[in-house]
Structure formats: structure tokens, C-alpha cells
Write a protein that binds this DNA or RNA. Structure first.
Lengths: 347, 347
DNA sequence: TAGAGTTTGGAAAACGTTTACATTACGTGC
DNA sequence: GCACGTAATGTAAACGTTTTCCAAACTCTA
């Protein structure tokens, strides 16, 4: 029970005294090893480890004028918060950061008006020296703000921002849904409905474009009545599917801008005794964990969020190191994962 | 394009000069407002806000000798990382912390040997001044370590640790499964199987005890062959359920120590044309998001993770403020959520 | 009005680093 | 043997706060 008053935390002075050198030398041993004679270097190093010396991060940060920390803001909606995306991203970021010796500061805030305030707090309070921005929007005030203030950041996802370019890593939603749509067309579907995402979200436009492109290339006409927009929730998928199925002419396939809505669609089908992949094909997007466990298992587009997180850190580090923005813009191609919810249209 | 060299960040000196007072006064205005005449206070405050002054956290932390940051280590298993528990917890923590003006440092590390090293890095590197410990184990080296070094922390979950008490907030798994088991018994079940969790995890023992208690009180004998242990994965639930159903005598209800395994059980049932809640009742634990979307929707025990996170912060703050450990031990009672996967046994 | 409190605000010393600059020591080439 | 680079270390000044002393300026009370 360490109740004896704790030993006077070992600082750089202590190490210096013990080694019979000045504190400058100790500091050099740790930061510029080549600038000190191997013999003394070894001695200092040995003493430092023996004493368990760890430079105080606050002294260091103050002197260097760097926060040595990067920030991530996670929007936490009021209700249930199932978004495994952030967890995977977090794992990836963590992996990348621990190598670089940076820390990760996570802030959560309700999405909406206060969101930007959350970023301001981090930036203006000098809590972080760089940021990772997730889930970009078409007109993204956060990006505008960060660019304006010259704060290093990388975005996961592109944005419609005109003018200043910024570093991003995006997963090509257009390609993803282009392929998914092609797949449905190849199976023989012609009556394809599309449940889209709120169009202020950046990825909404890309995924939609992919669908459109495939349909246009195949010269299949899209039925405007089947082009609807949900709010990404399971509930909205359910409701919109009800509407689609109530109409006189019904689609043979439904493409959904995310898995949650696709799951809602599957539920709507089940509610009428239909089964996804048989009477109606359903394809989602994201490949969230529960996509494996739906009935039937959901066909969807997979995004490698963890790798994304890891790469985002590398990019941010490069940015902090002065790399040109033009070298820091990447678009990855996602993978179509076919499970059980797609099949040929029934006659 | 803020390419004009950025204005010389406004520091306390600047504010002092502008207000015609010493930096000491400015500091006092911000930290001990009563120690300064209202008149000057207002003036300084006005200038500070006009200039957008934000105390540099590193200067402050260095001087105060406090990290003003609390840490959370998230174990990130190699594969898929669906555990929404951490996300909810994070949201709760964030909510609590932003009030207190503390920051949240998140580290991720592969579970296992390096886990303790991860804690050491945070603690010995003085990165955090307190920690939140999630998912305690029966013999938890992390708790031992933190107690040993007198690091303030609060645990989510109890532990078998002998000797020194520590602050925790636990959700009563025993109560949870006691009630779940009672519910099954009341429905008329007598042949109940139990798929448990790895018994190094702390909650495993509690949930098991709840089951045992209810069975004992009802004087229903447990069949040892039906008491099995899974690894919390969906896959292991599936496999173990197969075994149970292959035996000559089969249970009419299966209680699972977590939802993922319960989902596996449902899948195993479906694979043989059986349906959860009809031929065999299934109850899980956790109430993960996908529990709402299984077929049938999973009956389970709900844990309010977000509220937990919020309360954990309050407790940690109290601990940092010197509150006695004995005042910081809470056990909450969870809630049985009945959906569609339970029903009376079929004759 | 002197003397004793009581506010109020300033000067300066920390907190633990890093780093620009100064110093010393040591060859080396002439 | 002398000047001169070069390498290795030390000295001291930051970085931006908070806080401990003090001194000065009030406010009472007798």
C-alpha cells in the first residue's frame, strides 16, 4: 500500500546529476543522440532507464510549442449509437498513432450546431496539432473553418468545397454502387429502386452517381417514383420500402445507400411474407457487422475502415511534416460483398 | 488563404498589457475571480474575450502539475470490432467530461500481453491523471497495477481483487440473469441450458450465479451437460447450440451470457428449421443494437452504457477530489427486455 | 488621525523541457 | 608551436502559466 509519500518524481535534473552531466546533455541524448559522445550517451541512457525517467510531456510540449496530440470529434446522436464505423476507425487511428508517439484526443458532441464549437475548442484551445475529420458533408463548414485557420487535418471523405484543396482519403462510393448496380443488371433486373441518403452528406452524391452511371450505360430507364431518400435509419428503410411495395408497379431490386436502411427493407419484405434475394433483391452499403447476421445475410459494399484509419494517420503525419496537399488525396475502391440478399428477378 | 504570417498568438502577457494590469491579475481573474476587484475583473474579462484569449493548456498543465486529461484504453481485437459498448461508453464519458473541462485520451491496443504496457505508457508518461477501466476481469492485473501506483481510476465492473477496495460502477449481472431465469421458469421451462462466458471475465461469474440462484430457489435441477462455455463470439454460440441440439435430450430454453452468442444460437435453430421463442426460447445479455433486428427479435438484458459512462466520469472526478473509495462503489440493476425470442415451452 | 486589519495588485519564482550560444578540449596542418 | 576548425559539453534563456510572497492602498475603529 504505497502510503509512504511517493518518491520525488524523477526529472531530467535528477538524471543529469546522477550521470554527472548537464541537463542539456541528457536532453540531447534523448533527442539528438548523434550530438553526444557514444560513451556518455550510453552512460546517460543506462541511468535514465535505471531510474525509469520519462520526460514530462507538458514540459516538452510547452517548450516545443506542439500539442503532440491529434483530435477526433465523434458526433454522438441522442439515441442509440450503433455506428461501428467510428470504432473501427479508432482502432486504425490508434495503431498508426502509437508508432508516431502522438496521442489521440477524442471529443464527443451532439451533431448539429454545437459541432463546430467542439472543433473550435480543440483548435483554439491548442489541445491538438492536427485533426481527423470523419464523415464529410457536401458543404462542410468544418473543413472551411480548418482551412481558414490553417490547421493541419485530413478528411475521411471528399467535399464539394470549391477553391482550396485539402487532404482526404475517400472510398469511392461511385465505383461501389456502379458495380453493385451492374451486378443487379447482369442478374437481369430492370426495375430497380434506389433509397438514397440525405444529400447534404457527401457520399450520398457519389453513390447516387454510381447508380445513375450504370443505369445509363445499360440504357435502362430509372423510374422517378422509385428514387427516394431516407435518413439512414433502419426505420426509414422500413417505411420507404412499404411505400415502394404498396405501389401498383413494384421494383424487383432495391439499392440502399447504407446497410441500416437495407435492413429495414428486409424487415418490410418479411412483414409481407417476402424474402430478400428471392422476390426482391436488396443491396446495402457499409458492411456493418450485423449485415452478416440478417436473414438473409445482406449483400453490401465493404469499406475497410480500420485500414482507412491507419492510412489517415500516415497522411496527417505527412501533412504535419510539410507534404504537399496534392500528394495527400487518395480514393480507394471498395469491394462488393455478395451474401444472400441478391438474386435473379423472379418472373 | 491566411498566408499572411499568423498573428502572434495572444497570450496572457498580451491581455495584461492591453488591460494595463499584471499577468498575475489576469490569471486571477480566470482562476480566482473573487480575489480581484469587480471593476478590474470586468475590464480584463472584456479584453480577454475580445482578444479571444485561451490559456495555453501546456503552460497551465506544467505549472499545475496536472494532466487535465483522463484516459481510456480500448482493446481492439484483430478482426471485426463490432463492440458498440465502447462507443456508447465513449459518448457518456464525453458528455461528463466536457462539463468538467477535462480531456479524454483514448488509446487502443491489442488485448493480451501488451495491454498493461499500454496503461503504463499513459500513467508513467504522465499523460493522464486518471483512468476509466472497462470490462474488468476476475484477477485484473490492471487494477492491481493502478492501485499499487496510487493512480486514480474508476472501473466499470467489479473484480475479485482481495484486500484494497477500489471505486467501481457495476451492473448487476446476477440480478439480470436471476430475473431472466425466473422469467423462463415462470413460463414453465425446466430444461434450461446455459452458455457461459470465459470465466476470467468478471461478469461471467455474476451472471452464472444469478442463473444458479434462480434454479436453486425453484428447486429445478441443472443438467451439467447443458452448462457450457463459449468465447462470446457469434460463431461459438452457433457451434455450442449445435451440440446441445444434437444430444438425445434437448433443452427447451437456452440462456446466453451475451447477445452475440445468442444470435449464433438463433442461427443454429434456424439451420434446423426451428424458430427461437417457439421450439426453443433464447435469452441473451447486453442488448446490443442488432438484438432488435434478429429474427425473432432477441429477448435480452439491457445495460445503460451511456448513463454508465456519464456516471463513471462523475465518480472519477469525485475520486480526484479526494472522495473516499467507500462512497464510490455502485451497483445498478439492469432491465430485462422481452422481445420475441422467448415463450412457453412446447409440449 | 494613528493604528490595525483587509483588499487589491505586482514581482518573481517556480513547473520540466529544449535549444541557441558560449566554452572547452582536441586534433591537424602549416 | 601556433592558429584553426571540429566535436563535446555546459550555461542560460526561453515556452506560458499559476501562485507565493509582499507592498501599497484602502477601510475601519478608537
Amino acid at each position: 500500500m504505497s502510503n509512504r509519500l511517493s518518491p520525488p518524481a524523477v526529472d531530467i535534473r535528477r538524471v543529469a546529476a546522477e550521470a554527472g552531466v548537464s541537463i542539456a546533455t541528457v536532453s540531447r541524448v534523448l533527442n539528438n543522440p548523434d550530438r553526444v559522445r557514444p560513451q556518455t550517451r550510453e552512460r546517460v541512457l543506462e541511468i535514465a532507464t535505471r531510474l525509469g525517467y520519462r520526460p514530462n510531456p507538458n514540459g516538452k510540449r510547452l517548450r516545443k510549442g506542439r500539442a503532440e496530440t491529434i483530435g477526433l470529434v465523434i458526433p454522438s446522436p441522442p439515441g442509440r449509437f450503433a455506428d461501428s464505423f467510428f470504432l473501427e476507425l479508432l482502432a486504425g487511428l490508434g495503431e498508426g498513432l502509437s508508432n508516431a508517439g502522438l496521442d489521440l484526443l477524442v471529443a464527443t458532441c451532439p451533431p448539429g450546431l454545437e459541432e463546430l464549437a467542439c472543433y473550435r475548442r480543440l483548435v483554439e484551445g491548442k489541445k491538438v496539432e492536427g485533426l481527423v475529420l470523419a464523415r464529410t458533408r457536401r458543404h462542410d463548414e468544418r473543413i472551411a473553418y480548418l482551412l481558414e485557420h490553417d490547421i493541419p487535418f485530413v478528411a475521411h471523405g471528399r467535399s464539394d468545397l470549391i477553391g482550396t484543396p485539402f487532404p482526404y482519403l475517400d472510398i469511392d462510393g461511385q465505383q461501389g454502387f456502379y458495380r453493385a448496380t451492374q451486378h443487379l443488371l447482369n442478374l437481369g433486373h430492370r426495375r430497380i429502386a434506389y433509397i438514397g441518403a440525405p444529400h447534404d452528406l457527401n457520399f450520398a452524391a457519389h453513390r447516387w452517381a454510381g447508380f445513375q452511371q450504370a443505369m445509363a450505360e445499360a440504357r435502362v430507364e430509372v423510374n422517378p417514383a422509385w428514387m427516394v431518400e431516407g435518413d439512414l435509419s433502419e426505420e426509414s428503410g422500413y417505411r420507404l420500402a412499404q411505400n415502394l411495395l404498396d405501389a401498383s408497379e413494384t421494383p424487383t431490386a432495391i439499392l440502399c445507400a447504407n446497410d441500416l436502411m437495407a435492413i429495414g427493407v428486409l424487415r418490410a419484405l418479411r412483414a409481407r411474407g417476402l424474402k430478400g434475394g428471392q422476390e426482391v433483391s436488396v443491396i446495402g452499403y457499409d458492411d456493418i457487422p450485423q449485415a452478416q447476421y440478417t436473414d438473409p445475410p445482406l449483400s453490401t459494399v465493404h469499406q475497410p475502415f480500420r485500414d482507412t484509419g491507419k492510412r489517415l494517420v500516415e497522411m496527417l503525419l505527412a501533412r504535419l511534416g510539410g507534404e504537399a496537399v496534392s500528394q495527400l488525396q487518395e480514393v480507394w475502391v471498395p469491394e462488393l460483398v455478395l451474401r444472400g440478399s441478391d438474386g435473379p428477378p423472379q418472373t
